[in-house]
């Protein structure tokens, strides 16, 4: 089977503007976009630049726009796309382009750090000095948001973030949610205060692009709505 990829290329040392280039090559329906990119890099143009590491959908390196939607290149099989037409591959939107499909994620991680995405509990350890116990129900409460791999597909699909990347973005809210609703954590109030602020959850316009984009199938908009409600009601249920 033949496929044609139309890839947005950009080399800041040579190109004034990004431009598209087309590559037609043999591929299997079970190949992933990442495999096709690797083939192009190996056989057609070694300068093609993209980010990848695990190739198994867990490191979060390979988020890109494939046919206009954010996806992981390593989780997108050709057979799930219409290969009779060209497949468009572009970098994720809203972060500065570095080269070809690589963007500068600094702002994304700065936003992530704003929400204190780590466990906070200064109380002494339990008697036995080991675990802080939690019931299965309490663990279940935030299970969905533990699955995030920080790929950035959600945040860079968000219309609010495109317009203004001081908005913390869906990914940061997902990671805040993971600790806010953890019964062992003690910093929920602080995180809610940050998220109630100017660049927090109320910038969300419920466009739902994040949830559609998430390769881990996290119900992101729901998590955001839960944080909104926690802020409004002051309750964590």
């Amino acid at each position: 089977m033949q496929v044609t990829l139309k890839i947005l290329r950009y080399n800041p040392e040579k190109d004034a503007q990004p431009h598209y280039e087309r590559y037609t090559l043999d591929a299997e329906p079970t190949d992933r976009i990442l495999d096709v990119l690797e083939k192009i890099k190996a056989h057609e143009d070694g300068t093609l630049t993209f980010r990848r590491s695990c190739a198994h959908g867990i490191c979060g390196s390979c988020a890109m726009r494939i046919n206009g939607r954010n996806r992981l290149a390593c989780k997108t099989l050709l057979q799930t796309l219409d290969t009779s037409k060209e497949i468009t591959v572009e970098p994720i939107l809203g972060l500065p382009r570095v080269k070809d499909l690589v963007v500068d994620m600094t702002t994304f991680f700065d936003n992530y750090k704003k929400v204190m995405p780590y466990f906070v509990n200064d109380e002494p350890l339990p008697e036995d000095g080991r675990e802080r116990l939690q019931s299965p129900e309490e663990r279940e409460r935030f299970d969905d948001t533990t699955k995030c791999i920080l790929c950035g597909a959600c945040t860079t699909a968000c219309p609010t973030f495109w317009a203004d990347n001081s908005y913390v973005g869906p990914s940061a809210i997902v990671n805040a949610h993971r600790f806010i609703f953890d019964s062992r954590d003690r910093a929920a109030a602080e995180r809610l205060k940050i998220l109630a602020g100017e660049s927090g959850v109320f910038r969300c316009r419920t466009a739902f692009n994040c949830t559609e984009a998430c390769p881990r199938e996290i119900d992101i908009t729901k998590a955001i709505a839960e944080v909104k409600r926690a802020i409004i009601t002051g309750r964590l249920d």
Partner: peptide, 9 residues
């Protein structure tokens, strides 16, 4: 950007 959510927005 593609998707029903985006178009609705």
């Amino acid at each position: 950007y593609q998707g029903l959510g985006n178009w609705a927005f």
